[in-house]
Design a protein around this nucleic acid. Structure first.
Length: 437
RNA sequence: GCCCCGGUGGUCUAGCGGUCUAUGAUCUCGGCCUGUCGAGCCGAGUGCUCGGGUUCGAAUCCCGACCGGGGCGCCA
């Protein structure tokens, strides 16, 4: 049997008075006694199936007894009617219930009452039937595709690094521990060490879009335990600016692609994408502190910028028309061991964060590629070089200067679409309490 | 992990010591209706998160657990 018509678009292009088979979900049944309207939801909208009792009583009965959200295949004739939504409707000849939906639904797809996010997540497969929920993931898919395209155009190679590891990466963030045939293993918190190791091979422009895991018991609207990290690493850079230029170009380019390619989804979300203009401002850390102090924030030199400060800084930049900006040259002391310190002022490093709408989207910088310095850095941070031997060996035998970034895809989608919670941007989010579905 | 707030039919809510045989909506079921499109009208159905305690009496007050919302820390 040929596949049924899955889209409204396809339905509308079928000849009037011809016959068509629709496949979809029963969104609503309106039984007026002698005439009934069944809204069948296809992939991109609904089609009205109209049945009259007198034309086929058995079929009318079957149709009006359908439970909402059942999956049906409806064969019928396309008729034009100006009272129908798209100017046409389907007169059914035969209905097959492929999968009856149980009633009542745990969550209404078109109910007039809302549902709490937690209820929606508990019933995510139903929640994802809503056009507004689907729109988020259509945008997300487009954004990821656009980012891939931007990098491929720049000669990057897509890679995949292990998500199971025998040692943690950077220290700090807590790792999920698991059993590996009797040995201890960890879920990767970042591809950081591996993508750097690839710089020692000649694959000098790589990127990866993959999950990362953090066992931090964070309870916020911008943290989850499993997130998708968009990482890139580039060799032969002159300085950190080379990285900043790439990241601002690809993000801005991807935003523009989404704005063009996801018009319908964006409309249904009520979102208008503002594409930042290039270059995106670079705000050195020391200047960021000054701005914060001007706003009355008490912060000492060398302190990390806390959430309040980050939001205030975002506000301050937004007032100048910049929703997106870099904070550069963070203190070396608050950055991981692999960042390169500025040789002129070693207390500051070649590192940056990409800020967007008051939240951190990405961080990165130039890496320390000199073996001896790297070894010193590890010791300074109180880490045991023995645990990093697999990583250090890549530096011992020759590695070009390099740098890169890690960007939170979920966060980027969240902020781009102004979603109240990062979980809205994830199909099946994982957080401190949620492991299902 | 810390601070604040909350958990009432399938869903979302009102009630916050007796007046609760718990409000309204939505939903589900039944009935009426030939152009609905937030369909309408009539009728019915389903509930106080769990475990202790206070009290003559607890949805309501107290304690704990679990779960949820917001904020912080941390970061993508």
């Amino acid at each position: 049997m040929a596949p049924p018509v899955r889209t409204v678009q396809e339905f509308l292009s079928a000849p009037v008075d011809g016959s068509v088979v629709l496949g979809g979900w029963v969104e609503d049944v309106r039984n007026l006694g002698s005439i009934a309207f069944v809204l069948v939801r296809l992939c991109d909208g609904t089609v009205q199936v109209t049945a009259k009792k007198k034309s086929n009583e058995a079929l009318f009965l079957q149709l009006t007894k359908l439970s909402r959200e059942s999956v049906v295949r409806v064969a019928g004739n396309v008729v034009s009617n100006r009272e129908a939504r798209q100017g046409r409707e389907l007169q059914p000849v035969r209905i097959d219930v492929l999968a009856a939906a149980a009633a009542p639904l745990p969550l209404g797809v078109v109910d007039k009452v809302g549902a709490e996010f937690d209820t929606r997540l508990d019933n995510r497969t139903i929640d994802l039937r809503k056009p507004a929920t689907q729109a988020i993931f259509r945008v997300r898919s487009l954004l990821e595709g656009a980012l891939r395209g931007e990098l491929h155009r720049r000669g990057f190679m897509e890679v995949h690094t292990p998500k199971l590891a025998g040692a943690g990466a950077e220290g700090g963030a807590t790792l999920f521990q698991t059993d590996y045939f009797g040995r201890r293993a960890y879920l990767a918190q970042s591809p950081q060490l591996y993508k750097q190791m690839l710089m020692a091979t000649g694959f000098d422009r790589v990127f990866e879009i993959a999950p990362a895991f953090r066992a931090e018991p964070s309870d916020t609207v911008r943290h989850v335990t499993e997130f998708v990290s968009f990482d890139g690493e580039v060799s032969w850079i002159e300085d950190q600016e080379d990285i900043l230029r790439i990241i601002e170009e690809i993000v801005v380019g991807a935003f523009a692609s989404v704005r063009e390619g996801a018009k319908e989804a964006l409309t249904s979300l009520g979102v208008e994408i503002r594409v930042p203009s290039l270059p995106i401002p670079r705000v050195p850390y020391v200047e960021a502190l000054e701005r914060l102090r001007e706003r009355g924030k008490r912060i000492r030199d060398g302190d990390d910028i806390d959430t309040e400060g980050e939001k205030a800084l975002g506000q301050s930049m937004a007032e100048k028309g910049h929703e997106m900006f870099f904070i550069t040259e963070y203190p070396t002391a608050i950055k991981p061991f692999y960042v390169m310190a500025n040789p002129e002022e070693p207390e500051y490093s070649y590192s940056f964060d990409l800020e967007y709408r008051g939240d951190e989207m990405a961080s990165g910088g130039q890496r320390e590629h000199r073996y001896d310095v790297l070894l010193e850095n590890l010791k300074t941070k109180g880490l045991d070089p023995a645990g990093f031997e697999f990583y250090l060996s890549a530096f011992r035998y020759g590695i070009p200067p390099h740098g890169g970034w890690g960007l939170g895809v979920d966060r980027l989608v969240q902020r781009l679409l102004a979603l109240p919670n990062i979980r809205e941007a994830i199909l099946f989010p994982r957080d401190r309490n949620r492991l299902q579905p």
